[in-house]
């Protein structure tokens, strides 16, 4: 075989272009939409190995990033920005929790996949509202699957479950106004 042909796959993978992320909301826009009129105090934390272990064990998910990006809302509650694994790339999303740790809203901040964008649909995201860390938050149990968007649906559901568990493990003792 002519060794020049070995350069073809190398050239192909070098040629590939970075994806164009569709940014639906910035963190600031999501904060304003989820907590209208509130101001936000950042409560960024680095999770300890014990906290990671507790979150993973309780939520049955993997903690992808030990850096927790949480903000305390002046009107009560918490805003947490995070990301989950998509089919090819990460899916940045945000969760608003009330002062008892129940979900107020879920927003998809960016979506970079060709399929599965239905997780942005309002009725699907509304299924999370009111659910706390004691809820199942399991796809096909209390959260309906979206046909054709199974992977995104599952990972966003797992991500929300992980964040409500993170609240219970880490933030619930810091909710008083």
């Amino acid at each position: 075989m002519n060794s020049r042909f070995l350069l073809v796959p190398v050239a192909a993978v070098c040629w590939v272009q970075p994806s164009q992320a569709v940014v639906y909301m910035s963190v600031e826009q999501a904060q304003s939409a989820m907590f209208p009129g509130a101001t936000f105090a950042p409560e960024f934390r680095t999770l300890t190995p014990a906290q990671v272990s507790a979150i993973e064990k309780t939520s049955d998910t993997h903690v992808l990033d030990k850096q927790l990006r949480a903000w305390k809302a002046s009107t009560g509650g918490w805003f947490i920005a995070d990301q989950v694994v998509g089919k090819h790339d990460f899916i940045p999303f945000a969760v608003a929790l009330d002062d008892k740790g129940a979900v107020k809203a879920v927003e998809i901040l960016e979506y970079r996949e060709a399929y599965g964008g239905e997780v942005r649909n309002g009725p699907w995201r509304a299924q999370f509202v009111g659910k706390g860390h004691d809820a199942a938050l399991q796809l096909t149990r209390d959260i309906q699957n979206i046909s054709g968007a199974t992977l995104s649906s599952k990972h966003v559901t797992d991500g929300v479950r992980r964040l409500v568990t993170t609240y219970a493990v880490l933030l619930s003792g810091n909710s008083a106004q």
């Binding site: 796959p9 192909a12 994806s19």
Partner: peptide, 15 residues
Amino acid sequence: SLHYANQHLFVTATY
């Protein structure tokens, strides 16, 4: 093998 994918394109090279 090496695989790259973005929103529309995917390339997989295998030796």
